[in-house]
Amino acid sequence: MSIKSIISSLLGTGGAHSKDISPEKQLKDVSSGKQAKGRLAFIIAHDRVDIGPGKMDQMKKDMIEVLKKYFDINESQIDLKLENEEGSTALLATIPINSVLGRNGRTARSECSSRK
C-alpha cells in the first residue's frame, strides 16, 4: 500500500490530491497502529532528507517568494510535503494558481523527487 493511499484512507478523502500528512491533521478515531504508521512515514521522510518541519516551513516561504514573481497564487492553499515510495523520497508540492497568462482557476501540481 502506498503512503498516499494510506493517508487517503486515514482522511477518508481518497482523491489524487491527498492532504497534509502531518500527525496533527490525522483523525483521532484512527486505530493506534495506523497512527503509528502515519507518524512513522512522516518522521522518516523528514529524517532521510534531514529537513525538519520548521525548515520545511522556511522553504515554503522561500518558494512562495519565487513563485509570486511568476504566478498569482493562493498562499493559504499551498501544500508541501515529503513522501517516501519504494526507497525514494519525493517532495510534493500542490500549488493552486489563481491566474497565469490571463487564464483563471486552473490548478497546477508540480513535483520534484530525488533518491534518498
Binding site: G33, A36, K37
Partner: peptide, 19 residues
C-alpha cells in the same frame, strides 16, 4: 492479537516504511 485489532504496526507496515 494487537496487530489484528489495529493497535500495533504489522510486519507489512514496517516493511513498507523500511523497504
Amino acid at each position: 492479537q494487537m496487530v489484528k485489532r489495529g493497535d500495533m504496526l504489522g510486519v507489512s507496515d514496517v516493511l513498507d516504511i523500511l523497504q
